[in-house]
Design a protein around this nucleic acid. Sequence first.
DNA 1: ACTCCATATGTTATGGTATAACAACAGTTG
DNA 2: CAACTGTTGTTATACCATAACATATGGAGT
Lengths: 163, 163
Amino acid sequence: MDPLGFEHHDHRHCVHAALAAAEAHCARHRLNLTPVRRRVLELLLEGHRAMGAYDILDHLRAEGLGAQPPVAYRALDFLVSHGFAHKIERLNAFIACTHPETDHTPAFLICRGCNAVAEAHAEPTRGMLGRAAAEAGFEIEQAVVEALGRCPNCRKAEEAPCA
Amino acid sequence: MDPLGFEHHDHRHCVHAALAAAEAHCARHRLNLTPVRRRVLELLLEGHRAMGAYDILDHLRAEGLGAQPPVAYRALDFLVSHGFAHKIERLNAFIACTHPETDHTPAFLICRGCNAVAEAHAEPTRGMLGRAAAEAGFEIEQAVVEALGRCPNCRKAEEAPCA
DNA sequence: ACTCCATATGTTATGGTATAACAACAGTTG
DNA sequence: CAACTGTTGTTATACCATAACATATGGAGT
């Protein structure tokens, strides 16, 4: 397990840092990072991959933080709507944001081998799509950009099947 | 109802033309455009918008063409895998392709006012996303590009609330 | 004609994702 | 304290999708 940038890194550290950043952000913006919401963000950060709402719910249940789907979905809605997490439409799953604070339109690279997800940056209002939208008189408010393919690790594994 | 390019057009004609084109393509490529598959494509073309699998299924049922979900899903799988239709991940719905034959990576403009969907063309392997993927060593095989926003008609309606 | 095989359809059952609707409670503001 | 806002808890249900197996249908080869 070493997704996101498809590289290894100090995971323990990044979880804590992201959590602290989220807390600071919420304090600054008068947002209520309740125990459930905080824990869901932590779970997403720890998992460091796309997780289904019911995966999350299983953890919450085990910890006595809520037993019904709406509990998980509400926490996820909060995180997504404030930019702490994103939904991967293609997977019906959620993932912690790797650069919150930064105003960004996320794009995802989803590996079909290991399901790792890396977050990149897109500018949907530019390029061909932006031009097409402008021509059609369409106002883009939000965009889902998800590329499916194979991450470097899985490509390597396929070329050199030494396992 | 006048989606796709967000403009009015001779709908009757485009349904027939698209259906004829699909038939020709299937004949040429030895694909089996069975009654169910043909009818599902026709429904998508007639509806001219994103339709859920169960919407489709309701029609099929009413026409005695199949009563269970797999019937609809299988026909949709066929159409999608041969490029006659696309799945809109964001809506969990399907839409007829507006330019089959052409080899293309579809991108969609989805209006949150009227749910109309226009199909544009994207080149995910270029631009920022392509660069990010190349840097990460990620090989893009397929891409989902879906922009949400407001179509010209709904924008107009909002500015001049004369209804 | 008959068997074999591939493809397509039919059906049952189930699994996975998501939300509506309402009840209860906490904090805070006037 | 009363009214309000926001959060959580719970029930119930709706919606989306597929696994698994049974049944047909239509060639290809003999």
